[in-house]
Design a protein around this nucleic acid. Structure first.
Lengths: 367, 367
DNA sequence: CTGTTAGCGCCTTCAG
DNA sequence: CTGAAGGCGCTAACAG
């Protein structure tokens, strides 16, 4: 072999930019370049400096694919969401990305769009790209797919634990508390006729919210009217549709609790379409507290779920390097708090005003 | 070498799931497995069937990293956006992903958040992951970074061509037409005092919209009042702030054209805060036509920009396999159409009404 | 039409 | 503390 090249390029390739080029320019071996890049402390500072110089001059970027291949770690975190156009998810994604990038991870986003074929594809793509961990933030996914993921020994996090789940972390949202607060708030205002628009009930998460609602009613002692329990689909259009349905009824509710903000916005839109006013004619409460909720008209009363907590929790669980986690073992389940944010879509029901007005019973129940 | 294993695993590794395992189980060579997976037609159907069977039984998924490494194609398309929480971007991302997945590509999303450090990181990450192409859909990015990308010979697409650009495709949005339509619409209604809230003027795209506005005024023959040209930042909060500023002025406009929908929503919110009504007191027009624009109250008149066109254009340009493209050479520039969508935030200006009813000159303008 | 083999760019023992 | 060399899992020549 001649002096400088042990490698024997069979064909093609113009002078590739790789670790060898850098090594040659810095007059060190590729191993040293590798060590320098990986900040291994046992590298002679002088050499390191030469290497960094060469890297800068050559405009070299390490090839992540190759690193992943040899190290077995892709430094990719998967995130499967339901649909990216529901504003809650971008906010979640943003947080998730922040947390991930902070730890040197890239994120791979896929959305199921509630479509079975797409779900399969989402999972397959995660596996093929060898994600180091996957967060399933979709509000509903087919169970067998999760097994696929588990079978690949890819760390997983879910939102809301499901009946029989393989060994995977789960983040539990405290629906109970949030929805209870919402119902309580309405009850204090005087509402007794409260409707609930759920998500698709074949989704576990939607069922949890639904349960939380019925339980809250019971606890507070408000009778449940089955015809005020409407199944929505977490979309704005679904909310509109549900509201229209509600408006056709003879016995109308005075308040509507929605299982997410988009639904609530749809409800309000339908109300306006029918020349009704919120909150004068109907009180409305959402869920999620998406950014825009505060700025629509009227500003939406809603139950906030911290997507920063969600994101942080998920990433923490997924990244092995999560340092400073002494009590890691028992942290397999995390509770995400919720909180009622009172704005302008809730007020005393119209009936109550009429009833109470003679007594001048002021509405002192403003939180 | 002994009968079955030419490979000599130096150490570790429990029986990995790789192409060799599949080959062994299907009793063929790894080359055949590879060819089968890649659907190369010259494989004996019987063998192919055995291979697929083995793949299914073993739950095998090809390792994308390895394929990328050897083939030189990562099948990753980068998408750099400004901020994922502006609803326009999720809609764009969704389309982009659809188009990309359709062609067998994954997408890598990064957002700059208008932050210089993050921009650098976004570009670096694209290069390190060896994206096969990058779409820069950020409304503003530092030029040197684009050179970085170009230097790596990564195909690029931008939105709106910039002054001196390296060889890269650009998608041009037809701001002229859309904004002209908006101004024209207002003029026809009788508005002569039209304000414009731009994006950050250090961004090229923002400047284009700004220009389109001033030119439209000129064409239509409406005088320009510099104090009605406000610099916003494409956010809801920015819109609120700009509107508050406008409301303090003695000489108030009667209509406000915003350079995106989020700004318009902020403007409306500020108006409501000041007990003003849209469109009675002010007409408002947005830009983008995000999904929610139709459902807020009142529904927003806006200028639609097709993000499907944007996405499709970008992906088409970035994916080599884009078949059926005879006239590819001259398609280096694509015009994205815009369209005025009239809803409920625009009407006849109040002054006009007053003019028509001289006797009922109400003093209802107290912010 | 199938199998063998040489790398893709990098990390990582293992000798010096 | 540095350099040489063997793969990581896969594709793409090249032989058979």
């Amino acid at each position: 072999m001649s002096a400088k090249k042990a490698r024997k390029p069979r064909t093609r390739k113009p002078p590739q930019m790789d670790i060898h080029t850098v090594a040659a320019r810095a007059k060190v071996s590729i191993a040293t370049v590798s060590r320098t890049i990986n900040r291994i402390p046992t590298v002679d500072p002088a050499m390191a400096k030469r290497v960094w110089k060469a890297i800068g001059e050559l405009n070299y970027f390490p090839n992540t694919q190759a690193r992943a291949l040899v190290s077995g770690k892709s430094h990719l975190l998967g995130l499967i969401v339901s649909e990216i156009t529901n504003p809650f998810f971008p906010e979640l994604i943003r947080r998730f990305e922040e947390c991930a990038v902070e730890r040197g991870y890239e994120i791979l986003i896929t959305s199921t769009n509630y479509d079975s074929t797409r779900m399969t594809s989402c999972v397959r793509r995660m596996i093929e790209r060898k994600a180091d961990g996957v967060a399933v933030m979709t509000f509903g996914i087919e169970e067998p797919l999760l097994d696929q993921l588990a079978k690949q020994k890819i760390p997983l996090v879910y939102v809301d634990s499901r009946p029989q789940q393989p060994a995977a972390m789960t983040l539990n949202v405290d629906y109970r508390h949030g929805i209870w607060q919402g119902v309580q708030h309405l009850a204090v205002l005087g509402h007794r006729k409260i409707a609930f628009i759920s998500g698709p009930l074949n989704l576990h998460t939607a069922r949890l919210r639904h349960q939380a609602f019925t339980q809250s009613l019971q606890q507070i002692g408000i009778p449940l009217n089955a015809s005020w329990l409407i199944e929505g689909d977490h979309t704005l259009e679904g909310g509109m549709h549900a509201m229209k349905h509600l408006l056709q009824s003879n016995d109308k509710p005075t308040a509507i609790l929605c299982s997410n903000d988009m639904t609530a916005i749809g409800v309000m839109h339908a109300a306006f379409d029918a020349a009704l006013r919120v909150p004068d004619d109907f009180s409305v409460i959402g869920f999620d507290d998406i950014h825009i909720a505060e700025f629509i008209y009227p500003p939406l009363t809603t139950i906030r779920m911290s997507c920063l907590d969600l994101a942080r929790g998920a990433v923490a669980v997924l990244c092995p390097e999560a340092k400073a986690q002494p009590p890691a073992a028992e942290r397999t389940n995390l509770m995400i708090p919720t909180e009622l944010i009172v704005r302008r879509t809730t007020s005393i029901p119209r009936d109550t005003i009429q009833t109470l007005k003679p007594l001048i019973r002021t509405a002192s129940s403003e939180p």
